[in-house]
Amino acid sequence: MYSRPSRIGLIVRHALIWIGVIYALFPILWILSASFNPTNNLLEQKLIPANPTLEHYRRLFTDPTIPFPKWVLNTVIVSGTTAVITVFLCALGAYAFSRFRFRGRRAGLLALLLVQMFPQMLAMVAIYLLLIKIKEFVPWLGYNTHPGLIMVYLGGAMGFNTWFMKGYFDTIPRSVEESALVDGATPFQAFLRIVLPLARPILAVVLIIQFITTYSEYVLASILLKGTEMYTLAVGLRFFIQQAYDRRWGVFSAAAILGALLILAIFLPLQKLIISGLTGGAVKE
């Protein structure tokens, strides 16, 4: 599709790519610089800080008025729990859809496909009212609790991931479990001991994507959590910087860098795996 470009053509190509790289990286470099800049004011910032300082990072962890460590902890707990439980529950469901033949299987798969089309946040009013109701009966699972939020996220994660994993399980030949079944293992044992280890790549993909998605979720967390101590990072950071770009830019930048670093540290080394999941899942059918 390409012919060998002339020398000028090659230079133009590299130049275009470099413009793209600057476009891609400028905001990140800019907050990196802000996070080391001694001023907290957006207006006084320079790209290369005059007197670089770690003051903003220190404040994130020492200033009791900025519950940044708490927000990160909340987010990691909520996202981690959601991701782990999602992987396990969806693997179970996907195994059943992939291996068993039962009445309602086709209808179930179709229903799953339809339900996962519905963006869960469209039902935010109902979910909000539902969790307030649940709080009356089970206070630790209702409105303004992390288990409650996790429960909501789990519901939203089931449809797509079950469907996605089923596709992978279908590619694992049945013969690998059959000998175990002949030897008297129950299907559950075969699933746990044989199929799950073989499906490790897809489990990892779902785990990571679910973690990242939950980490970045804003709407439901903002509706269902109240009070700075309960916030996840997304809700907390918005609350922190809103209307305060002139006063908190430096500290905010430090928080943004650290918050993004966690995800970048997961994403960049594993990008091949994640991208195969994100795009493959959609083009597969």
């Binding site: 529950l89 969806c90 179970l92 469901g93 195994y95 059943a96 859809f97 068993f100 179930g108 339900v115 519905f118 869960q120 039902a123 109902a126 979910i127 539902l130 429960m151 909501v152 789990l154 519901g155 939203g156 089931m158 449809g159 079950t162 559950f188 699933f191």
Partner: peptide, 17 residues
Amino acid sequence: FLLPGLVFLFAMVVYPI
């Protein structure tokens, strides 16, 4: 195998719809 996931799907997606 299906029920654990279905419970969440029903409670947090289907019922809210």
